[in-house]
Design a protein around this nucleic acid. Structure first.
Ligand SMILES: [Zn+2]
Ligand SMILES: [Zn+2]
Ligand SMILES: [Zn+2]
Ligand SMILES: [Zn+2]
Lengths: 161, 161
DNA sequence: GCGGGTTTGTTACAGTGTATCACCGCCAGA
DNA sequence: TCTGGCGGTGATACACTGTAACAAACCCGC
């Protein structure tokens, strides 16, 4: 359920990601254009959440500038297809590490010292939330759960200075 | 635990809020200045989440303009004191309806049709989340849980057009 | 080739939040 | 009383985030 087995291999699944995205688009009859590919690759190149403007800058070269608005459009598309998540508390984006069942809740774990964002889920949390909303007479359409703190790797690093 | 007993009385607790805030500041040796008072009052005047710029505009009068930056500073103060919450998914602010135990998780219920934001909490959800984080080796410092959907009142209104 | 949808480029703009510096009011300490 | 610090405010400018609008390019089926 976690993105990291150890704490490397973060970007080793980037090519895998691109292949998965391409297959998924073909299956749905959608266009996996070069821009969308580049944006997804840029997002997948780091396990840190990246801002749209960072991505735009990274994709821009002396001869060819990629405007932020283009990046936003590509990100919108990739989010609709479930390939990318937006981290609301950071105004930033991460690649989705593992596809989700429709309607499944995701929990984002954001490390405040290394900036890495991991994603997980919990039937426990989800069930509790469902009951709570039911009791409150509230019908949910979408929810976000983002936790900031220290990841295991950083806490370890902290202990041995 | 909910802000509304029925679904009125939303702003009837605004004066109460101000008194509470003043007492709290005195107790902590902090200044409850006119600006901070005005900002809190403006936030408490609606059960909808309001943007900082909206508040600034509302507090501005022909003779006296309140700059957004001042509002942000007041909001920062009020958030530190737990009197106001920020809704990350809306870039907006709501008054805290009922003080929280330190470290207690809050769940924001954001109605997409009437815009009202209610807050609640759940030991169930909190326990589940704690276990999940423990299992993931993640030490949390702060978490946000925001749910968008339809509140009971709006769903009722929907059913009887 | 042609027509109509989709994608991209470009520009401009709106919305959100912060940095900086100057000024004021207050109060402790010389 | 003076004075220096300190927290709060005003004011300007700026950075960052996101969207609207329109034109051009592209693709794909007819
Ligand atoms: Zn995911
Ligand atoms: Zn970390
Ligand atoms: Zn609250
Ligand atoms: Zn509602």
């Amino acid at each position: 359920m976690h993105r990291h087995e150890g704490h490397d291999a973060c970007r080793s699944d980037a090519p895998d990601m691109l292949a998965r995205a391409e297959a998924l688009c073909r299956e749905r009859g959608l266009q996996f254009t070069p821009l969308r590919r580049d944006v997804l690759e840029a997002v997948a190149e780091s396990d840190k959440a990246q801002g749209a403007y960072d991505i735009a800058e990274r994709l821009s070269a002396p001869g060819k500038r990629v405007a932020p608005v283009s990046v936003y459009r590509a990100l919108d598309f990739l989010m609709e297809q479930g390939l990318v998540h937006r981290i609301a508390s950071r105004n930033a984006f991460i690649p989705c590490a593992h596809g989700h069942a429709p309607g499944e809740g995701v929990i984002f774990l954001i490390c405040r010292s290394c900036g890495a964002v991991d994603e997980t889920s919990s039937a426990d949390v989800e069930g509790g939330l469902e009951r709570t909303l039911e009791r409150a007479g509230f019908t949910p359409t979408h929810s976000i759960l983002e936790v900031e703190g220290d990841c295991g790797a950083c806490r370890e690093r902290e202990r041995t200075p």
